[in-house]
Amino acid sequence: MAVMMYWEAIRRAQDEELARDPMVIVMGEDVGVAGGTYKATKGLYEKYGAERVIDTPISENGFTGLGIGASFIGVRPIIEIMSVNFAWLAMDQIFNSAAKVRYMSGGQLEAPVVIRSPGGTAHQLGAQHSARMEKVFMGVAGLRVVTPSNPRQAYGLVKSAVRCNDPVFINEHELMYNMKGEVPDEEYFHPLEGSEVARQGRDVTLFGYNISVHWCLEAAEFLASHHGIDCEVVDLYSLSPLDRAGIKASVSKTHRAIIAEEAEAPVGVGSEVMAIINEECFFELDAAPVRVSARNVPIPYNHRLEKAAIPGAKDVVHAVLKMFGKQ
């Protein structure tokens, strides 16, 4: 196991897939000569050339649609959208072309594209560069949505997404590219469906995904050492489909659930997980499930306001203590 950064893990996965299959291409703004905004394509232009590591114009709907069209005849594009905020512009092609073409052609065509994009609130980027859009993507039939919380998942999810014949949206995070973690030395394919128990526990399940897994883990350590509460942390790396069986198994064990999400609450991951809990294991519950979500505002520029809008480990701790009547 080598320790590498999240961006290095993504870069390694793309490098391996480019080397293996001449039909794999990488495309996006600044992915080539400039090496990628978050270095995820560093050195790949020099290695594979301009025909396969393609610097696109700033035309998100256009180049996403171009990648999707290429995938119709056997190309395996990895499309990087520099910031998830810009993916709004590519929604037509992602939703109307990639996600629907298999169905509306009666199975004749498929769009095996990978669309990678970082979301999340970074540091004072303002309302138009701080979107968390995973909830928008996960509501669309025909599209897979995964979101890695560590370098191992980032590497293995990119690998599986490139090989999978469905369109896959990979939701990354602007603050996580320099996170370090162990990645297997041998080739590794992470499942595109399911969830992972990131920490075993008995008293309450903390559901997180992407960056919020880390809030949950931090909260769990604090609660164990300071309050004797034993939290289980479930990492929902697949947002579409969500792992019904995994959610049910954990809640049936702990009988309590808290969902931590960086996005706003309405129509989100938290509300969907709560609905699944209701449908799958309502009578197992000892307490009403709770969401820890962002405030429902366009993200402000001011540092204090921005911090107040986005939850973190402390908010997860408060939610758990409140659930146990300790606050």
């Binding site: 001449p22 025909e51 256009g62 996403t64 649609g65 171009l66 069209g69 995938s71 109307n96």
Partner: peptide, 21 residues
């Protein structure tokens, strides 16, 4: 395709694939 203008980039993508092949 039923979104007006949707096929423009798809056609360019098919052309990209043909060129690669």
């Amino acid at each position: 395709y039923a979104l007006v203008g949707g096929p423009f980039p798809l056609a360019a993508g098919i052309a990209k694939g043909l060129k690669m092949k």
